[in-house]
Computed example of a mutant assay.
Amino acid sequence: MDLHKLRSFMKKVNERLETELSQAIVKLHAPQKIKDAMAYSLQAGGKRIRPTLLLATLHAFGKEMKYGIKTACALEMVHTYSLIHDDLPAMDNDDLRRGKPTNHKVFGEAYSILAGDGLLTYSFQMIAQDSTLTSEQKVKIIELLAIAAGPEGMVGGQVADMLGEKQELSIEELEYIHRNKTGKLLTFSAVAGAIIAGASSEQIDLLEKYAENIGLAFQIRDDILDIEGKEEIIGKPVGSDEGNVKSTYPSLLTLDGAKERLHYHTNLAKDMLRDLNLDTKLLEELAELIVVRNH
């Protein structure tokens, strides 16, 4: 699979996203310092997998990007807030993110915490003020984003990850961490796109299962890259998981076992798409991209 259609689509998504995110920060009535700190991490690049997944889901239903772009921006804000806070000295204490100094290295811890807080809360404002959504869609999407990002999702996964440090976890415990810390926002991406597109409950269920599997595949690939990746490409030191005595898929399953599990979840994700009877080419290629990505 050459991923040509997906790469072209991602280029359009990134261009539109950069414009929308930049405009969203500029129009804030807030001190320039906090706007600069928020913009610094938002504009640091990255894969933009979550907004791409949301908008590719819309595309599968034949819907235009404009209906999901505000929610896609909100989603990227939530993801970026989590990265800013993860990098803080009290958490992972990282100096680099996407090949650049982390937010707190540039703006200091206090402003970084506030930048993360600002992005998280602004995300819900973005959705609430989106004129392309119905009131019912706004309420449902805000509810699902809060669940995905909160103690029953990303925050809970992060806590479980911290509690599991320097311990050998079971594969079930590791999956719980990644289903929540990484997977819930990816699942939200597909489900939100489906809600905006007016999907049936059966279609939403299939897309939810698809996204759950690519979420696990995404994390397994991350663990593999921590062993096989190149620092100048992934933008952070390799081997950090082993150095931190952290349970990973390769440490629990061996590197070959992790690669087998990666393909298992990717294939399961693609199986879910076959029953949708939609144009799922972009979603199929997105699953493939997770397998071959090098950062």
Rank of each mutant, 00 (worst) to 15 (best):
H4Q: 14
M10G: 01
R16P: 03
E18L: 12
E18F: 07
T19P: 00
A24T: 11
H29G: 06
A30E: 15
P31E: 09
I34N: 06
I34M: 11
I34R: 06
A37M: 08
Y40N: 04
Y40D: 02
A44L: 11
G45R: 07
G46P: 04
K47H: 09
R48Q: 09
R48S: 08
R50M: 05
L55V: 07
L55S: 02
A56Y: 01
T57N: 06
T57A: 07
L58R: 03
L58F: 10
G62Q: 07
K63V: 13
K66L: 09
Y67T: 02
K70G: 00
A72Y: 01
A72P: 01
L83M: 12
I84A: 04
A90H: 06
M91W: 08
R97M: 08
R97T: 10
T102G: 01
H104E: 01
V106D: 09
F107M: 04
G108I: 10
E109S: 11
A110L: 07
I113K: 11
L114E: 04
L114N: 05
G116W: 00
G118M: 09
S123K: 02
F124M: 07
Q125S: 13
Q125L: 09
Q125N: 13
Q129S: 14
Q129D: 14
D130Y: 05
S131H: 12
L133Y: 01
S135I: 08
Q137W: 10
Q137D: 03
V139E: 13
I142R: 06
L145P: 00
Q158M: 10
A160S: 12
A160L: 14
D161T: 06
M162A: 13
L163A: 13
L163Q: 15
Q167C: 13
Q167P: 00
L169D: 00
S170N: 11
E172V: 01
E175N: 15
Y176N: 05
Y176G: 04
K181P: 06
T187V: 15
F188D: 03
F188S: 01
A190W: 00
A192C: 08
A192F: 02
A192L: 04
A192Q: 01
G193W: 00
A194W: 02
I195Y: 01
A197S: 14
S201W: 00
S201Y: 04
E202L: 13
D205V: 03
L206I: 00
L206K: 02
A211E: 09
E212T: 11
G215E: 01
L216P: 02
A217Y: 02
Q219L: 09
I220S: 00
D222I: 10
D223Y: 06
I224A: 07
I227S: 00
I227M: 05
E228T: 15
I233D: 10
G235Q: 09
S240Q: 15
E242R: 09
E242H: 06
G243V: 05
N244E: 12
K246E: 11
S251A: 15
E260S: 13
R261K: 15
T266F: 03
D271V: 04
D271Q: 15
D271H: 13
M272P: 01
R274M: 10
D275F: 03
D275G: 08
L276Q: 03
L276M: 03
N277H: 15
N277K: 13
L278K: 06
T280H: 04
K281C: 03
K281P: 00
K281T: 07
L283A: 07
E284A: 04
E284P: 12
E285V: 07
A287T: 07
V292K: 14
V292H: 10
R293A: 06
N294W: 02
